[in-house]
Design a protein around this nucleic acid. Sequence first.
DNA 1: TTGTAAGCGTTATCAA
DNA 2: TTGATAACGCTTACAA
Lengths: 338, 338
Amino acid sequence: MVSIKDIAKKAGVSISTVSYALNGSNKVTDETSSKILAIAKELNYVPNAAARTLKKRESKILGVFLTDFSGDVYGDLLSGMKTVCNAQGYDLIVCSGKQSHRMLPERMIDGAVILDHTFASEELLQYADRGHKIVVLDRELHHPNINQVLLDNKAGATLAMEHLIELGHTKIYVVTGPEGSFDSAQRMKAVRQVTEREANVEWIEIVGDFEKSGGEQAAELIIQEYTRPAAVFCLNDEMAIGLCNRLAESELQIGRDIDVIGFDNIELSKYVQPRLVTIDYSKRKWGSLAAEQLIKIIAGEPVDHERIYVTLVEGGSVCRQVPQDIPFPIRHERVVSS
Amino acid sequence: MVSIKDIAKKAGVSISTVSYALNGSNKVTDETSSKILAIAKELNYVPNAAARTLKKRESKILGVFLTDFSGDVYGDLLSGMKTVCNAQGYDLIVCSGKQSHRMLPERMIDGAVILDHTFASEELLQYADRGHKIVVLDRELHHPNINQVLLDNKAGATLAMEHLIELGHTKIYVVTGPEGSFDSAQRMKAVRQVTEREANVEWIEIVGDFEKSGGEQAAELIIQEYTRPAAVFCLNDEMAIGLCNRLAESELQIGRDIDVIGFDNIELSKYVQPRLVTIDYSKRKWGSLAAEQLIKIIAGEPVDHERIYVTLVEGGSVCRQVPQDIPFPIRHERVVSS
DNA sequence: TTGTAAGCGTTATCAA
DNA sequence: TTGATAACGCTTACAA
């Protein structure tokens, strides 16, 4: 490995002169500087990141932690983060899994964006106490070294519920996320608030898991006890799509016999038939804002907590309810079980 | 920041003793060792990654480089890689973009898996020459420090073409990937080989880009000059889905008037109507094999190049061609242009 | 403008 | 079994 020592030797100067030249300092003559640069290039010199990080006590790398790599939500989110990071002279790395948590305390990265419930909040607070900078996307946490950039879950869930109620629904199934999910809890809170205001609206909670399988299981339940009209608010699209898949095998037609609404507007939701009604937000914006906030707190600049706004996306999975006199017959014994 | 120096001072021993104790060496008494460990815990000691990497000349981190974060292919691939990495004591980080290339030469990572055409092959060869270990997933490259784990593109494309030919097709549109894509070039080579064997099969090349938009544009062309029977082999699913989307707006019915086949079996292809016929392979296997190979070449173990096998997935987007006497009329002026 | 030297936090060699 | 010490490659006062 060629180091600045090798360059110094070859150029007949000291290592500090080499360091200055390499870093574009004006403390050194253009002449010596260009000579050093030429030699560096000739020797294929590449600085050693570990040495630089050790000395400067910063790596200029930011990390984002995800529960897993397979979420559809992540593409634009990461892309938004990367754009901001690169523009500000930072590199971005994506990490997942317990093992990689050490990157933050061991100072491999200068800061972390967390969208990963496998980080305990106490763990994050501990890191923050030791001076590490963190932006959380999946919980509320108050600490001078932690900033939050959260979805407006409440607005989204309210939008979804009110949409269904407005169309005439009085019985709404709500399929939740897994226990401990912040997003799920926030969305549920909004569901409760809306239904408290609306005396004639009944809602039934079905515990889900934010995965397709949870939606499928919810569909089973709903098919069993179906009475029309019925509507389902799945607290994310993944479950909504699982639910639609299962429903498609039954006699219930989505958007006619049963209305479905999701949350997240993942790409797939455009492709299910009929198009899934869902809550949309800019994943790219979410990412870029998170990165911006992280870089700011690293720089010691003051930041406020940020919120990502949401909108409702229309589609065929929800339909105005007209009073029906002909009850739709369901013969349970004929329901196809996949 | 608390370092081993602080622990040494508090424990009344030297830093080397602390280092030994912390690393579980048996050169030190259980008594002193446990005392040191207790103090380390009490002081919230966390080792400094940069210092360790600098000294040991290895980071125990592997990097995987992707062109962008938004591919559907990546979820399982990364997950497979991570599993292997973690089991072998390595951490995995995901990187994207020109800026992050430096991670390898600057020795932030011990090796790299490349699925990113923004790396020039000369660049990779240069790194390999300097002793860096690399596994490539998107090109052929021969160097003692480079290993390849490639899809069996040839088998996949042959499977697809033969499937269409077997069903009676004699005119096949082939929508390619972008220029310079290794996968596209390999798949095209197989297309040519198959058609050379089959004298009565005509094929028409349409240059694509591996994106949905490329498929849409190809659809326009095909709709314009449509004569039945027609079949399209899109060299990846993304384009096949773009093509299907555009076709759905026309009068041509997929799987009846026109057959479509893709490559990759991304999740979306399950959801398009009718289900896309495509070439499948285990993305998880691909990732785990890549990680295994990388770790082996880092350890100096000999490795052979590996190949990922493929299969054909059936679906409704392809249908047996029966001789038709009634020509299907297309009125170009009525084609809906989105 | 350039050089000397200290130090970042480890590991590891060699003595004691 | 433990301790002094050099070294990893770099940055940066401070001195010349």
